[in-house]
Design a protein around this nucleic acid. Sequence first.
DNA 1: CGGAATCCTTGTAGATACTG
DNA 2: CAGTATCTACAAGGATTCCG
Lengths: 133, 133
Amino acid sequence: MSQRNTGAPSQVVNAHACPVREVLDRVAGKWSVQILVASSHGPIRFTELERGIEGISRRMLTLTLRNLERDGLVTRTVYPTVPPRVEYELTPMARELHETLQRLTEWAERNRHHIAQARAVYDAEHRPELLDV
Amino acid sequence: MSQRNTGAPSQVVNAHACPVREVLDRVAGKWSVQILVASSHGPIRFTELERGIEGISRRMLTLTLRNLERDGLVTRTVYPTVPPRVEYELTPMARELHETLQRLTEWAERNRHHIAQARAVYDAEHRPELLDV
DNA sequence: CGGAATCCTTGTAGATACTG
DNA sequence: CAGTATCTACAAGGATTCCG
């Protein structure tokens, strides 16, 4: 697997055709994943999300939910009660995505320590001024 | 699986403890993934990356490579020849990550059409002004 | 309760030019 | 060849206020 890259422009990664990017573009936002996780156990209300996701602002919760809804990842159901009640629920597609993200989580958990260490080493070698003076 | 969320603040997703976020933070950048993919076949030179990744600027290539190197995802090897030659190679850890990202790609490819359609529907319903007048 | 509207700060990225 | 430096722009996100 450690073969040299043969000459030729190897893989011209076309940004527009790259499906990973598409996923990342909708999941990379600061809050998208947390919303997916928080609502992965069934329908959940706006306020429950707001309380469940630490540090999120009303604005960002709304915006992110809109985007997820637009992409068909969550459904939004309004119950015309008083006071109004709105519930969000993951679509089957989003549930699959959520499972896939778990794989990513596993990788992260296996390697987080390794990464932290790599960082420490790098910083020590390249940015000694950051260490206590 | 479609059970109501029972009362209680369900899952308080702590941003600092969430490993998915950590991964995303280093992979979500506009170029990180493309670099991972482009160098997944073995050592690759700076210029090869620059040519292989359409639209990337020298600056962003450098910055992104530095970050990847810092996180222990790529190794940087300088050959003190003249002209100078620098090769980047994925670490084993990065290779695992790359494979995990493939799962994400598969999901994207399975659902990209579905998503595009969801968008179209959403836009038609919520933003009629965007349609031809 | 569940937003929308507004304002402001910051990070991410592009363009360009210079260098060991 | 493989970078660094600088300057700029735009979009993501935070804080706050107002509304049906």
